[in-house]
């Protein structure tokens, strides 16, 4: 999957309260949530965002509350992908589970500015800042997560498992660190934690 869109750039520690304030959590309607997306950090976001745009942020994007309404609001607002230096762990899982593509790519995140045209190739894990004419390599999803992504999201993965077609994660068990592409080794060199899995990126957008 390839996305091309305009960057909306934010700093570090963007919390889920500013992504979707709790005063709007009395609904689960994606469009209604989208109409308040980023309201407390960027009041004009909703009027500026266009389908296919890309949110770019520094460390710890999506920290705070577990509200899945946060990635839901972003996705329903038309955002194609979020590129960040790192993600808070619950947000990271939620985004994958609901099919909002996300990518951990610190250099791309630091150097991008609002208004830059960004191209994301999820399969290659490649971020290109077309405005700055620079290409960045993000990490790929580890194998474990690729199974969820390949199934089309977590609930489909669960359905497959129920039907006995879920592959090797079908029962309680383990996949060893180091045997998993992009996990253990990458983690050690990434003090901020490059994703729930150490590695991140890839085609998360099929759910």
């Amino acid at each position: 999957m390839i996305f091309e869109g305009m960057a909306h750039k934010y700093g570090r520690d963007v919390d889920t309260d500013v992504i979707i304030p709790a005063r709007y959590l009395n609904t689960t309607d994606p469009d209604e949530l989208a109409s308040h997306c980023m309201e407390d950090i960027d009041g004009s976001f909703v009027s500026r965002v266009k389908p296919g745009d890309i949110i770019v942020a520094e460390e710890n994007f999506g920290c705070g509350s577990s509200r899945e309404q946060a990635p839901v609001a972003i996705k329903a607002a038309g955002v194609a992908c979020v590129v960040a230096a790192s993600f808070a762990r619950i947000f990271y899982r939620n985004a994958i589970n609901i099919g909002l593509p996300i990518l951990v790519c610190p250099e791309a995140a630091y150097e991008a500015e609002s208004g830059d045209l960004i191209r994301v190739d999820l399969d290659k894990g490649e971020v290109t800042n077309l405005t700055k004419q620079k290409v960045y390599q993000a990490d790929r999803f580890p194998e474990f997560m690729q199974e969820i992504v390949a199934a089309g999201g977590l609930m489909k993965h669960v359905q497959n498992k129920a039907k006995g077609t879920g592959g090797k994660q079908g029962s309680s068990g383990t996949q060893k660190a180091g045997g998993t592409e992009g996990s253990g080794a990458d983690m050690a060199g990434a003090p901020d934690g490059a994703g729930e899995t150490g590695g991140a990126g890839g085609a998360a957008g099929k759910a």
Binding site: P142, S172, G173, T174, S183
Partner: peptide
Amino acid sequence: QDEVRPGDFIN
């Protein structure tokens, strides 16, 4: 499992 270590994916 008898043991796990950081980085393992488990169910």
